[in-house]
Design a protein around this nucleic acid. Sequence first.
DNA 1: CTGTTAGCGCGTTCAG
DNA 2: CTGAACGCGCTAACAG
Lengths: 340, 340
Amino acid sequence: MPSEGGARSATLSDVARRAGVSIATASKALNGRDDVAPATRRRVVEAADELSFTPNAMARGLLAGRTGTVGLLTSDLEGRFMLPILMGAEDAFGAGQVNVFLCDARGDAIREQHHLKALLSRRVDGIIVVGRQTDPRPSLGQEMPVPVVYAYAPSDDPRDLSLTPDNYAGGRMAIEHLIGCGRTRIAHITGDPAYAAAQDRLAGARAALDAAGLELVGEAMFSEWSEHWGRDAAAMLLQRHPDVDAIFCGSDQIARGVLDTARDLGRSVPDDLAVIGYDNWEVLSTNSRPQLTSIDANLQQLGRQAAQRVFDAIDGVDIGEGTHHLPVRLVIRGSTIPRR
Amino acid sequence: MPSEGGARSATLSDVARRAGVSIATASKALNGRDDVAPATRRRVVEAADELSFTPNAMARGLLAGRTGTVGLLTSDLEGRFMLPILMGAEDAFGAGQVNVFLCDARGDAIREQHHLKALLSRRVDGIIVVGRQTDPRPSLGQEMPVPVVYAYAPSDDPRDLSLTPDNYAGGRMAIEHLIGCGRTRIAHITGDPAYAAAQDRLAGARAALDAAGLELVGEAMFSEWSEHWGRDAAAMLLQRHPDVDAIFCGSDQIARGVLDTARDLGRSVPDDLAVIGYDNWEVLSTNSRPQLTSIDANLQQLGRQAAQRVFDAIDGVDIGEGTHHLPVRLVIRGSTIPRR
DNA sequence: CTGTTAGCGCGTTCAG
DNA sequence: CTGAACGCGCTAACAG
């Protein structure tokens, strides 16, 4: 019978009895209140140790009105963007005294409602809602008994607080980098046009091109966020516009495909053709030849900030509202800058 | 002040007062006990609805002695293997009435101890410990007040129950498939030799080769689990042993590198050279040219099973002990079988 | 300094 | 059928 060795956890009254004091005294002794004799405290602490006493957080929470837990409501754990956010949040909370309830709704609204109910019944002190895309998602409503922060996917209600990466700035940043590298004939291969991410990045890219008096070479190419599409699109592009000198890709996966085709067609990267990806998914971006310059959305930081906001809200601080677009950053590697 | 609209959650006594009954009656009405008049029940349910009453799970748990929560203690969320396991477990639990506390120890023993304490103080009904490698990890000990199941990384104490993928069988399966494809000159490129996974897979491979009266071409090549190493190793291998007709790779990343080099050197896959990966990481395995045959460890299922074991243990069922090696499966794609 | 008392929100006896 | 009373484990007021 594995993992059943220990008896049921000791209670405070067990400790008190063993130390020969009252329950209240034991409580004070263990919680570091200063109105208890040193000798008594030692006895109590010893007894607690011997029984490996662990205070019951539920009983404590019942009194305090706070549970020291928050809910992390994700719509789809599978998504690559979920994990860093989740890590950031878990990290920020774990450092304090709060624990995280993880709920995966699997993209199903019913299940989400179910999980939400469960979280509320567990009296979480706050909730972070993490969506899988940057498209706005339905708000949980304004009648929540606890603070809610939306991460990655913003809420569609501006009265909610949402934290989402700044894809527009990312698109701009990518183009500005390419221009800074002396490129002027820039094309764009990206994913599903139904994604706000695709549109926002493109808009940012257009803005940067405009500002430099340039235009995209050909139309922006939309399809899916895959390496295969990157390969096919690049082949089409390079045939129709052999004179492009840079390609801004909507994802690292697409960029990997583009690199592949460039190699097949004998185009040298970055000298002859610069390629920039998006997401900075290191498994892909650091293992390509050459390594991939990319835009990093700082997702872990986003998760951390979401956690911090929830913290603040719990402490009664006004955390504001609206959708905040968090800064992204450029990670430069060999696909845009020749290594010396 | 977003997400603060609702007042504090209603309590059962609020509901009772509004319905004009006693707390006890309200409780019975809401919990479907049959000793309450239909009319009364309706009044109570209505009142509960209007106040959007949600029972306090803590108070309930205090009485029941069970919390309906389990702890998921991971050593490193970043790991690719964590996520499917976590999903499987969350899935299995989410279907029932239990919620999951997620704790990431970041590979730090101190932090793990800290989180463990937190979980126990929250009186989780059970714990799943998920490690990032298949090498045995230190046991949490036999004195746990709740059942513990180890997933992926087995415990080093045979009295614990551990669920881990069968890497030996995976290695065997890979080789048997290659032999089944008519290959006889098989080489092995894998990752860090310090990983049990690398050793176990190799052992399984050797067993399968033995059984067929074959030997590995050259020595097994160890280094890191990266695409770069796959490329470099393949180049060395193909130069030294141009006659190899198949390569068993210790990971899909390595296999991607191998495919890359094969293409550079004009070796056609799978006709001239069959390549098989490991992990079935779909982003990599389905986006290569040709797509990658691989071994899938069924991690999501592993997570689900771990959850099921914890469930059983909570219900008092004896879940056994020892390290169980769960079956893996072969996923055949174009890198070993020519598409017709 | 220590012990007694009173709840936190709920489910469960057991009398009415 | 309904309600009053008790207790889950703990902390915060008070008394002693």
